[in-house]
Design a protein around this nucleic acid. Structure first.
Lengths: 342, 342
DNA sequence: ATTGACATGAGGTACGTACCTCATTTAGTT
DNA sequence: AACTAAATGAGGTACGTACCTCATGTCAAT
């Protein structure tokens, strides 16, 4: 009834504990025949390594680093909080987490941060940044040094990152488009789209997915060109006000970027606010309140807690040279309306 | 830099390891003054017990039981699969999970199963069932015996269960109502509502929430009385076909029960199927396909994986006499449309 | 001053695994 | 058969905590 241990395996396979240990930990000096005998015993007894005991014995610690921009968007703060929260629970996981922040508009600072890392003091890096040639090079160097790397939230597909932790942003944009279309009905009208930046891959992908669905399924609705706000409040306020004034036919607004604070504030002061369907990304203080206040209709979100935990799991696994079960690391695209707001 | 251990605490507090151990594990025979000295040292060094080492030493095992009906609804199968899956990973958590099934229509069998359990061989019970006086008594007995109990999916509020693991079903119904209203627009029409049984508390709560939102926000839409299908396919087929024939003004169907298989099949053969907005609960093979096929518009779901893991965490904590962080055990109400289907 | 109750210390073993050293056996080559 | 290299065994320590026993210390009541 009780769980088999290495000693049981040794006995069942008719070998010594040392040999079982060699097989289990892939150490050399065991004949193939013996290896299969041991593996057969493992199979037969249904042995599963006690990971906690193993880690205890191994005295393994994972030194992981999150690299984030200091973008003035609430979502980044939310992400940072989630990481900070994971730190407290990660003590039990033998994991030391450090957060490195770089100035949003300064790719050189990011590269400098990346250069400061090496396999000597780092077991894994999770990075939320845009892909530039310099970033590509820096990641390449880190990988060559043997440091596992995952991209966070916004993918870096042309780099040597091991994995991407985040939602499928094309699908997220499609989801937003689906809801926008269904909410607007067949009444026509036009939709304003805001993005943080057309350099931000996640934003571009969302826009792409949104457009796909709108043209496929809701051709009666006109989708306007993207407005880039560069996560800047003043810019947003100015541009949104302007478009709202010039285009009274606007019935929907899709905020595909990382923040919606300024947008929401403009709308609070807009008399036709209740005739506009507003869909944004990321559940934050601002979007929560906007949902509650009947100002916003839906939020497409990714659970930052899940993202952080997935990144930690993946980095630990990669650091141990283990494979990941990618189906278990998929981040869901969450739809939040005011009634399922937790 | 490295994490403090009990030995560091002993040294810092100027006491022996044995005394630290007594304090940490609440054993008697330590003066208050000494206790505070030790606690001060713990505070100062930021000591956190290494739970994995502790469990290893303690050789603690949790024997937990899930009690489920054999209802012919796909959702119950999904739940059962999630439990089975957790079994494999729970080996590492020193947890033995057993599933007990009782005939859906036979509350006496359920009571009998409950009676068979005792604190001698059970450290916790998670139960998905409806509340009846007999069930209440059986739970009362188990609690008196010191066995922690959580209600699963459908709450048992008038019993002595320690906790409820599942979604807020009123809010889930409200969410369904919100989407139904928004999708239908202001066109009026009427909505058919299906439930498994009006005895099932979760179903009743969903219906309640749905009605709240419909009357508050979408008064132009008529909501018909509930159709009870008792999770029976033939009944569903018959009743749904009949209502569809008699009421051609039906523009929406809300399936609040545990299964939607027969309903979906009827609709597949219904010529006006694309004029009907269909919203159901629980993501299963059937609802997935219906979403993909543009037959269903949204699914309100609860992540069975989360439910099972939460139940395991809560039962382990209760079994150790620990408090739970209820905010961490909240199960989200998920909205799934065809674009965010994973 | 003696007693007894209580508080504390010292030192051990155990949990399941990792990893080390050194001795011994086995297989393969000549 | 002798030799060598490789394979295996035996036995140890360590990780951080739990829990046990027994000895010794302290203090207050008698």
């Amino acid at each position: 009834m009780t769980r088999p241990t290495v000693n049981d395996i040794a006995e069942a396979a008719g070998v010594s504990l040392a040999t079982v240990d060699r097989v289990l930990n892939g150490r050399p000096g065991v004949r193939d025949k013996t290896v299969s005998r041991v593996n057969a015993a493992i199979e037969k007894l249904g042995y599963v390594r006690d990971v906690t005991a193993a880690n205890l014995a191994r005295q393994r610690r994972y030194r992981l680093i999150f690299i984030l921009p200091d973008a003035p968007a609430l979502f980044v703060d939310t992400l940072r909080e989630a990481i900070a929260e994971s730190v407290s629970s990660s003590v039990a996981d033998r994991t030391d987490v450090r957060i490195v922040t770089f100035p949003n508009d300064n790719p050189h600072a990011l590269v400098k941060s990346l250069r400061a890392l090496s396999a000597d003091d780092t077991d894994g890096v999770a990075i939320f940044a845009q892909e530039t040639p310099h970033v590509r090079d820096a990641i390449s160097r880190l990988k060559a040094d043997g440091v596992p790397i995952v991209a966070l939230v916004s993918d870096l597909p042309n780099t040597e990152r091991d994995h991407f932790v985040g939602i499928d942003n094309v699908a997220a944009g499609r989801t937003a488009g689906f809801l926008m279309g269904k909410f607007l009905g067949n009444t026509g009208g036009s939709v304003m789209v805001l993005v943080s930046s057309m350099q931000a891959r996640d934003n571009v992908e969302r826009r792409l997915g949104f457009d796909q669905v709108m043209s496929e399924s809701f051709p009666a609705i006109e989708v306007l060109p993207s407005i880039e706000n560069h996560d800047d409040e003043e810019t947003t306020t100015r541009l949104v006000s302007e478009v709202l004034r010039k285009r009274p036919d606007i019935t929907g607004i899709y905020s595909a970027g990382h923040g919606s604070q300024a947008l929401v504030e403009v709308l609070r002061g807009y008399e036709r606010r209740h005739d506009i369907t507003l869909i944004a990304h990321e559940l934050t203080k601002v979007t929560r309140e906007a949902l509650r206040d009947h100002l916003m209709d839906a939020v497409i979100s990714q659970n930052v807690g899940h993202i952080v935990r997935s990144a930690l799991r993946v980095l630990r696994a990669k650091s141990d040279g283990l494979d990941i079960v990618s189906s278990q690391e998929r981040i869901r695209i969450e739809i939040v309306v005011r009634e399922n707001l937790i």
